[in-house]
């Protein structure tokens, strides 16, 4: 394991300290060491946007704290949900008096901790409503869509929710827009190599050299097929074959596209993939109105890529276009 850390049990603490020192204009500490907020939060009369999740996905989750995005974030151990207390304290840090929208991903630990935190917040009259992202197509069949995991589609959900809150919408309106965003979003991941939690010291799954795992999850959850690595164009086609029919995306759809590396895949390979994605989408008559390519949502040093697509209506298009400033995503 060739990695950079001090004590493997405290990589999250050490990284959070670095983030705070590096970006005081974007990230502020709170009394809870596992909760960060944007310096302007809580913003009076704006619905607060909160998310949270395990560490190791940087820039997610803390990198999406910022203007027009997330107000406060709960930070968990690597690949492990933040505590209920962290979610609760993030709600408090984000609450400007109009309630809080907690927009997070569908994982057992996050579901339990958010549930406890929402209950705790209700005791002191802080209203929190939730949207649970479930954009990962291969993680469950369509008739069990509620079981699907949340992956990089969460970023688009935060962007939409954050922009809607900035417009002055009330909590129910923010929730409705965020839910609409994730309902219109589909993702798939392909893994080429495993990743290692520093405190564990060895990878907890394996992908045979020269192979790729289609539909892999953000923590190495197994996908739907393992096969020899194909040329980039065929990988692009394979990913589209999974997500296009699922929504389905159709001719003349306006779409947003997010291609994220999983941590150790060279950025140029994402563009090799995009070259084909753009060709196919154009051929199918789809119009890509928003495009994000880079390491937006990673899994430590895993090699691989995720593709996320959202079908836009005029509202989602408007909200994705609105200004935002965070480490992971900025729109001017």
């Amino acid at each position: 394991m060739n990695r950079i850390f001090n004590n493997p049990d405290f990589v999250v603490e050490d990284a959070v300290r670095g983030y705070l020192k590096a970006h005081p204009d974007i990230l502020a500490a709170t009394e809870n060491a596992r909760v960060l907020r944007r310096p302007l939060a809580p913003q009076k009369d704006k619905v607060g946007i909160v998310t949270g999740g395990g560490s190791g996905h940087e820039p997610a989750f803390l990198g999406y704290v910022g203007d027009g995005m997330v107000d406060a974030v709960a930070v968990g151990e690597i690949f492990s949900s933040p505590s209920a207390k962290a979610f609760h304290d993030a709600f408090v840090a984000a609450d400007g008096g109009r309630g809080v929208a907690c927009l997070y991903g569908n994982y057992a630990g996050d579901n339990m901790n958010v549930k406890l935190a929402v209950k705790q917040a209700a005791k002191h009259d802080l209203t929190v409503k939730t949207v649970v992202a479930n954009d990962d197509v291969p993680s469950a069949p369509k008739d069990e869509i509620k079981k699907r995991r949340g992956v990089a589609g969460e970023i688009l959900m935060w962007k939409v929710g954050g922009a809607r809150a900035d417009e002055g919408a009330d909590l129910d309106e923010v929730i409705a827009s965020a839910q609409k965003a994730i309902d219109a979003t589909r993702s798939i991941g392909i893994g080429l190599s495993p990743c290692t939690i520093p405190a564990v010291g060895k990878p907890n799954f394996s992908i045979e050299d020269g192979h790729m795992e289609v539909g892999i999850g953000h923590h190495g959850e197994p996908g739907v097929a393992v096969m020899p690595i194909k040329p980039a164009n065929e990988i692009a086609d394979l990913m589209l074959d999974h997500i296009l029919p699922d929504l389905p995306f159709e001719k003349d759809d306006d779409v947003a596209l997010l291609v994220s590396g999983l941590g150790a895949t060279p950025i140029m390979e994402l563009y090799i993939l995009y070259d084909r994605l753009a060709e196919v989408l154009q051929a199918r008559g789809m119009n890509t109105r928003h495009l994000f390519i880079g390491n937006y949502f990673t899994s430590l040093e895993m090699q691989g890529v995720t593709l996320t697509m959202m079908r836009l209506d005029s509202e989602l298009d408007r909200l994705l276009s609105a200004p935002a400033r965070s480490l992971g995503l900025t729109r001017i």
Partner: peptide, 14 residues
């Protein structure tokens, strides 16, 4: 466990 541990085990054992 509920306040500090998080994950799934925090709430369950908590």
């Amino acid at each position: 466990l509920i306040e500090d541990l998080g994950g799934s085990m925090g709430p369950l054992y908590g």
